[in-house]
Each structure stands twice: as structure tokens, then as C-alpha cells.
């Protein structure tokens, strides 16, 4: 075996150890970031074209995550968080734009996205977006969330502060109370 192969094997051992520790809750990391939303046109669950910059920079409260329809672990929990947040906001749900951006655009057609939202009992105000792979890549890069392989993606929630336009970047899976607290901090609840 070459040295590089041993090096990779060593990395594998490290990842394996991480896997074994994964029964513990992953720590949540919170930062405040500035992002420039790319000028791309995506497609929502109704098949309608959506200019992402206009949607995200509208000045209204916006929360963004990256998911895909056949994801096995992270996305279901993120989406349960979105669904639960909408339930907690019966009168305001339509005023908070929840945006999920597909990282599997090949499979996530408008129909797949509609079915997905239906499973989560999504209310108006939750938009699932897909698009050309190049455009999806641009969005992931813009939010420092690029992953070349969808199976190695990570839980990320981005909350836009309506007043400053800055983004609260939360790495990890939040509980309902943590999610509500984060929304409250930026005044969108």
C-alpha cells in the first residue's frame, strides 16, 4: 500500500471513531455571517420560476436550509423543525419565508418536492427550490455550504436578520425550543 493509501486509511479510522461517537448529540455552532445571494433563477414546488435574490433579499424574515427528497437522516429532522415552527406560528407563518434548497436537483422535481412538503404538512410560506445543478452549486458556494457529494452534507440552518441583512448560521440540529429562541433573537417571532 502506498503512503497516501495509508494516510487515507488513517483518515478512515478517524471518521470511524466519529461515527461511534455519533450517539452523542452533535454540538451546535452559531456564527453571524454576511452572504451575497447569487443571481440565479430556481424552480419551486409548483414549477414556477423563482428569482432567489428577490426571494431572500425581500426584507421579510427568511430562513434557509439545504435538503433533498430522499435524504435518510438530517433532512427529515430539519424539515420536522420547519413544520413544527410553522405550527407554532399559526397566524404569522405566511410572513416568515421558510426556504429549502435541494442539493439533489436531478431527482427533486417539482412533483417530488410537492409530495415531500405534503408529507410534512407544510403550510404556505415554505418554499422548496430546485434548479440547474450549476445554479444550485452557486447557491451552495455563496452560503459556504458547498458539498460535492450529497451523502456527506451537514445540517445547516441560515436565518436572515430582517433589519441588518446579516445571516445567523447554525451548524447542527436544533430542538424546537432552540429554533424558536434563535428566531426570537432576530425578531422574527
Amino acid at each position: 500500500m502506498t503512503r497516501s493509501a495509508w494516510h487515507i486509511a488513517g483518515l478512515m479510522l478517524g471518521f470511524s471513531a466519529m461515527g461511534l461517537l455519533a450517539q452523542a448529540p452533535p454540538p451546535i455552532k452559531r456564527t453571524v455571517e454576511t452572504y451575497t445571494v447569487p443571481e440565479v433563477t430556481l424552480v419551486n414546488q409548483d414549477g414556477t420560476k423563482v428569482k432567489l435574490k428577490a426571494l431572500l433579499d425581500s426584507g421579510e424574515p427568511v430562513i434557509v436550509d439545504f435538503i433533498f427528497g430522499t435524504c435518510t437522516t438530517i433532512c427529515p429532522v430539519l424539515s420536522a423543525g420547519y413544520a413544527n415552527l410553522q405550527m407554532k406560528l399559526p397566524n404569522q407563518a405566511a410572513k416568515v419565508n421558510l426556504v429549502s434548497i435541494s442539493i439533489d436537483p436531478e431527482n427533486d422535481t417539482p412533483k417530488v418536492m410537492r409530495d415531500y412538503l405534503k408529507r410534512y404538512r407544510a403550510k404556505p410560506g415554505w418554499t422548496f427550490l430546485t434548479g440547474k445543478r450549476e445554479d444550485i452549486d452557486k447557491v451552495m458556494v455563496a452560503f459556504n455550504a458547498y458539498i460535492p457529494n450529497k451523502m456527506s452534507h451537514y445540517p445547516l440552518t441560515l436565518i436572515r436578520e430582517p433589519k441588518t441583512g446579516k445571516w445567523i448560521r447554525i451548524f447542527g440540529l436544533m430542538s424546537s425550543s432552540e429554533f424558536v429562541a434563535e428566531c426570537s433573537k432576530v425578531g422574527i417571532l
Binding site: 420536522a80 413544520a83 440540529l173
Partner: peptide, 15 residues
């Protein structure tokens, strides 16, 4: 995740 209710029709064991 501690306190997020989930109906089985959203996701379940097989997911």
C-alpha cells in the same frame, strides 16, 4: 431532537 413532534407519515424507521 428533544421536543419536535413528528407524525410517522413525515418520516419513519425506514427513512
Amino acid at each position: 431532537s428533544g421536543d419536535i413532534p413528528v407524525p410517522g407519515t413525515s418520516f419513519t424507521c425506514v427513512s
